[in-house]
Amino acid sequence: MQQFEIKRLIPMELFGYDVSFTNASLFMVLALAVIPLFYLIAMNRRALVPGRLQSTAELSYEFIANMVRDIVGEKGMKYFPWIFTIFMFILVLNLLGLLPYSFTVTSHIIVTFALAAMVWLIITAIGFMNHGVGFLKLFVPDGVPFWLLPIIVVIEVISYLIRPISHSVRLFANMMAGHAMLKVFAGFVVGLGLLGGWAPLVFLVGFTGLELVVAFLQAFIFTVLTCIYLNDAVNMHHH
């Protein structure tokens, strides 16, 4: 579990709060540097017929843009930069965390919870801004018998309030479980020695590939769920 340990690299304090530059901060700053740098290099030539890097950059753009357009519709396109930022931030932090000796920022519940809470707060604000008090109708589904309504409304409210928790725990648990698993099997390699250590090593290589998929998938899922919640707020779908 020491891979999840926070180490204070440069102790700092602001207004009595501890804001030290930790290894987590280091990787966040790294992501902040890597993402714009990648796009700067990839889009440098602005070629009409894109090369490999530029294709990748454009593919990521189109991927998220299509996702927003499919789920939320044209009205959601003004939130596209925000959703794109969420996706790239989580994706790059997940992938950076897969490098040996690196630190996985998204394996910390406080980080994922902060992201999910931000999503939840902003989307709730968007819902109230677009529909006013009418946004509360989200908790009253159509076509429910009136004697069921009290129960349904309570359930809907709870499921709405619990969204940031499930949203954040999913990402956090996936990243943490994956890394803990890698650690356990790496322990097997050492524990079984030269004779028996090869089997877990092979498994470890395969599992690292799976973790790459999971790193992408969880960033994707986080973004898709954000889009679905945003759709509720923008279009007031009655479900």
Binding site: V169, R170, A173, N174, L217, I221, V224, I228
Partner: peptide
């Protein structure tokens, strides 16, 4: 993928 993630999350809890 959404179904997969929702399902996996319960186990991960």
């Amino acid at each position: 993928l959404i179904g997969f993630a929702l399902c996996e999350a319960t186990g991960l809890f």
